[in-house]
Design a protein around this nucleic acid. Structure first.
Length: 697
DNA sequence: CAGCCTCGAGTTCT
DNA sequence: CTCGAGGCTG
């Protein structure tokens, strides 16, 4: 009785283990789960309960054993049976062409390729994670190791056992005696974001990118921590392989042994075989022919890169035939039959040479990192804003530090994090100056504000220059030919002290400035004259009142109709304007209460500046009345401004961020995060033609 | 009062 | 483009 009980329990345990393994396989390898998470948990809980009642039946390959063993004090080292090599890199099509030519020539010489034939390649993704080697003996996972120096790596078996997409047992009938699988451990972007959100909540370390998160998770001395981290594994190669022969003898094959009796005779075939044994293999690999095939794959993957759930840093090309691989052999530490075609790096490390402080139009002191020039994402980056004091402290950046610089989806470089481990002894902490570096006025930092500001106001040359550049800008008075360089000269010479002084400039005196010929001076004077009849909203925006940007200036102009009315408006009147609250109203009142500012307005009027009333929006049923649209990417024929004008003319509004209230997102080439957001919120996405159709064009 | 929605401001390099 | 912050809404 007792005997049979135990046997049926053992059978049930084994059945549960098998079933759970199956579901892991469906989930991680086939990417097609067949049961809900809740059902999965139910199976797991039953197994845990049975094993707890019968500890003698626990085996190392049971799925319950993934929860993580007790912490270790250090990692042991593992010598790889077959070296883990690195790959040569290609950075542009010419490098790839050279690779293809070398391969073709060698294979033709060896009689493995017809004179005009194209080489068969296997192309696959180059995952941005950590290379690891998994060793299976008799079908069971017995060891996992990092790459290390290629010869010797660290023993991370206890950690890897917790990774669900790594099978603890191989599947299928013809299981090799020994199989070393090489592949990449990584984290999907979604899992990475979720993990970071969690880390933030628990006030624990935030990871810089998915690769660091994966690396940090694998290098935990406590496997229980690793067990809580969402790691994934993809196989792309192999090391030692021993197959069992029919006569019971064991055959030894190695990646470089050059044997005709591998289970399959191509690289792609081998990966299929590895997949059949239950290991996850990416299905974005493809067999292609010749140089054209390689470059076509690269282009295709480049386009799909953003949609991939995980990060890749390029693609890898391998000669598909194993016999051909043997002929090509190795050079130094890399095989001659393979190459990694890398995307332009989006992240690089460099050194912070210094931290300067810039003074902005509103007096905000902005620290800027001067970087050792570094090539990131296709351009050389030398500067990056550090925003403010808190940001520097948060990212723990010292002058002299090695830092990670990113040029993500957008264009603007960003210092992502510092690497304090590489901090030199003479590194200096940054301190915000107590006096403005431009005018020497005291600086202040208001409570609840991130910015430190110069108190000099328009006495400060930096603020004066930038307020004038701002007023001359395209969205303000739109004075063509008045750029930053010229404003610098005009202000430094003392000729221009305020916006009003611009309107007293003449051709003769302008010609005296650098890079100002007679012709340029004449054009500039004409442009300035044109600015004497600005739309009221543009003039209001040009004044540079704090918290009054393009939109608010427009609303104020519509509401009050004249500059005088805005100047004389009291708090209550201002609060009547939509989107104007106490802060904005106070800012406007303070601006016009300042005698200096009233004087500038008076001088502008004296110089003949007279705002014109803009056309009130037509009422009636316009096609986009009441709708908010968001533009992203580059449209084929319209500029952003043109599209905005058309939309506004049709009664619509253009906003910068996508939300549930957004009616349409108009996406062009290289649309970024806004397109993704639109999709996730289910907002209708249009192209330029779709927009034109709505407008009835 | 919290959470959402916008607006404003600052920023890089070619 | 992103972040911070003001204003509005539920």
């Amino acid at each position: 009785m007792k005997q049979s009980d135990t046997r049926s329990v053992a059978e049930r345990i084994e059945a549960l283990r098998h079933e759970i393994d199956q579901h892991n396989y469906h989930y991680y390898v086939e990417d097609a789960p067949r049961i809900s998470d809740a059902e999965y948990d139910r199976l797991m809980n039953e197994l845990i309960a049975l094993e707890e009642a019968h500890p003698d039946l626990i085996t190392p390959y049971s799925p319950t054993q993934r929860v993580g063993a007790a912490p270790a004090s250090a990692f042991g080292s593992v010598r790889h049976a077959v070296m883990m090599r690195s790959l040569a890199n290609a950075f542009d099509p010419e490098d790839v062409e050279a690779f293809d030519k070398r391969v073709s020539d060698a294979l033709k010489g060896a009689g493995l390729l017809a004179a005009r034939g194209d080489v068969d390649y296997m192309a696959e993704l180059k995952f941005d994670g950590l290379a690891v080697s998994l060793r299976y003996e008799q079908g069971q996972l017995v060891q996992a190791a990092t790459r290390g120096d290629g010869q010797t790596g660290e023993d991370i078996t206890a950690n890897v056992r917790t990774v669900r997409s790594v099978p603890l047992r191989l599947r299928g009938k013809d299981i090799p005696d020994v199989l070393e699988v090489r592949g990449e451990m990584l984290m999907t972007r979604r899992d990475f974001e979720r993990l970071n959100a969690q880390q933030q909540q628990r006030r624990e370390k935030i990871f810089v990118n998915p690769r660091n998160a994966a690396a940090g998770s694998l290098r935990q001395l406590d496997p229980r921590v690793t067990a809580s981290r969402p790691l994934r594994f993809f196989a792309y190669g192999w090391g030692e392989i021993r197959l069992r022969r029919k006569d019971g003898q064991v055959d030894l094959f190695q990646q470089e042994a050059g044997d005709a009796d591998m289970p399959r005779d191509t690289h792609s075939g081998m990966l299929e075989w590895i997949g059949e044994l239950g290991l996850p293999v990416s299905d974005l690999r493809r067999r292609v022919k010749g140089l054209k095939g390689l470059l076509g794959y690269y282009e295709d993957i480049s386009e799909r890169r953003a949609e991939l759930p995980f990060e890749i840093d390029g693609v890898v090309y391998k000669v598909d035939s194993l016999a051909a691989q043997d002929v090509l052999g190795y050079v130094a530490r890399a095989p001659r039959y393979a190459v990694a075609h890398k995307f332009p790096a989006q992240e690089e490390t460099t050194v912070v040479l210094d931290i300067d402080v810039q003074v902005g139009r509103t007096g905000a002191l902005t620290p800027v990192a001067r970087l050792k020039p570094v090539f990131v994402g296709g351009v050389t980056v030398t500067n990056a804003t550090l925003h403010n004091e808190d940001e520097i402290r948060r990212k723990n950046i010292f002058i002299g530090d090695t830092v990670i610089v990113r040029r993500a989806g957008d264009v603007i470089p960003e210092v992502v994090a510092s690497i304090p481990e590489l901090r030199p002894e003479n590194a200096r902490a940054f301190t915000m100056p107590r006096a403005c570096p431009v005018c020497g006025s005291a600086v202040e930092r208001l409570e609840d504000e991130a910015a430190t500001r110069c108190t000099g106001g328009l006495f400060c040359a930096a603020q004066r220059k930038q307020s004038i550049t701002h007023a001359a800008g395209r969205k303000a008075l739109d004075i063509e030919g008045l750029g930053e360089k010229l404003v610098d000269q005009l202000v430094e010479s003392g000729r221009v002290q305020s916006l009003a002084d611009l309107f007293t400039l003449n051709v003769l005196e302008l010609s005296a400035y650098e890079r100002m010929g007679r012709k340029s001076a004449e054009n500039l004077v004409k442009a300035i004259d044109k600015a004497r009849r600005p739309e009221l909203s543009r003039l209001l925006f040009a004044l540079g009142i704090r918290h009054v940007g393009e939109t608010t200036a427009h609303d104020l102009a519509q509401h009050f109709g004249s500059l005088e009315a805005v100047m004389d408006a009291d708090e209550e009147a201002l609060l009547g304007v939509r989107d104007v609250g106490p802060v904005v109203a106070g800012s406007i009142r303070r601006f016009f209460a300042e005698p200096h500012n009233r004087e500038i307005v008076r001088a502008l009027q004296a110089a003949g500046v007279q705002p014109v009333h803009e056309a009130a929006p037509q009422s009636g049923s316009l096609p986009l009345a009441g709708k908010t649209l968001v533009l992203t990417g580059t449209l084929p024929t319209w500029t952003r401004d043109e599209a905005t004008r058309h939309i506004m003319a049709a009664g619509g509004k253009v906003s910068g961020s996508v939300s549930k209230k957004t009616a349409y997102v108009v996406a062009g080439e290289e649309a970024g995060s806004k397109l993704e957001k639109a999709r996730s919120l289910g907002v209708t996405v249009l192209d330029e033609d779709g927009l034109k159709a709505l407008l009835g064009l």
